[in-house]
């Protein structure tokens, strides 16, 4: 890893100012993705801005029918929170499936969402629940936020402060994990809120997280596994690599969608 200037600002304003002054600066939350990336020299920021000393960025709060999670809230805290367990158990389950216990003790929801790794879990939950991503500048829906592989609508100097999940009537996440990396080979989050059904897929799309509109239409008529009996997923646009071909992933996506609906 190349050396860098380390900053640990105490306020969002200060953090944003450091980002504005240093074009090659990067934010660090739990660092569970950024540090391995820097070790491989795939990233070499001039400045690293640690968000951990800024107060008010972590915590879980239920506000009416919305669950608010601070950007610096760790996966372990989401996985074990009584509030999340009761209000949105699918999200607690998802958080408990990320990485391993030590990774969950450092990794954060804001970091995961901002990085938009094509195999990360949280983007699927955000997209399937149409979460609102709140930054120091504005609010965006998940549909607006995730724009492609490792790409988001975040602008220079923009910092995620929290993610707000509207509570669904039914939801579940089914993940087929790569046994070595523990990343999703295919992860499918399904949700039903009012009449709206949303299905989001991670781990399989070559352009990152995406909505499986075909399954959404089938499930809008009837939210049950049976409604998916004719579901076949097109391998076009899916990842094919040493871990599995695009066709294999297409099948996994269909299977995980059925499992998620059965569990919701």
């Amino acid at each position: 890893m190349y050396d860098f200037n380390f900053h640990r600002p105490k306020s969002l304003r200060k953090a944003a100012a450091i980002l504005a002054e240093n074009e090659e600066a990067k934010l660090i939350a739990g660092g569970q993705t950024l540090l391995p990336t820097m070790k491989q020299r795939l990233a070499a920021p001039s400045d690293v801005v640690d968000l951990s000393a800024i107060s008010g960025l972590s915590g879980i709060e239920l506000k009416g029918r919305k669950l608010q999670i601070g950007a610096m809230t760790k996966h372990y805290d989401v996985a074990t929170s009584q509030v999340v367990r009761e209000a949105l158990p699918a999200l607690a389950d998802l958080a408990g499936m990320i990485g391993d216990p030590a990774v969950r003790n450092r990794g954060t929801i804001g970091g995961s969402v901002a990085n938009n790794d094509p195999a990360a879990d949280y983007p699927a939950a955000c997209l399937a629940l149409n979460a609102t991503i709140v930054t120091n500048k504005r609010r965006m829906t998940a549909d607006e936020f995730f724009t492609g592989l490792f790409d988001t609508a975040l602008e220079e100097g923009e910092i995620i402060t929290k993610v707000i999940f509207p509570l669904p009537k039914r939801a579940a996440y089914a993940k087929f994990r790569n046994p070595a990396s523990r990343y999703a080979m295919a992860g499918v989050f399904v949700s039903k809120r009012g009449r709206e059904v949303r299905v989001a897929v991670t781990g399989a799309g070559s352009d990152g997280v995406f909505r499986l509109t075909q399954a959404e239409e089938m499930l809008s008529k009837r939210f049950s596994e049976k409604a998916l009996k004719d579901l076949t997923v097109d391998p076009d646009g899916l990842v094919g690599d040493i871990h599995g071909s695009a066709e294999y992933r297409a099948n996994l996506v269909a299977v995980m969608t059925r499992r998620a609906v059965a569990a919701a």
Binding site: K39, D50, P101, A102, V103, N105
Partner: peptide, 25 residues
């Protein structure tokens, strides 16, 4: 690479991978 866990220590009472934590953090 944060896979193997040989580097696990406790930070403020929780297990973390010390190969994937900055000293300054």
């Amino acid at each position: 690479t944060s896979q193997c866990g040989a580097c696990v220590v406790h930070m403020d009472g929780s297990a973390v991978k010390s190969c994937t934590t900055l000293a300054l953090a």
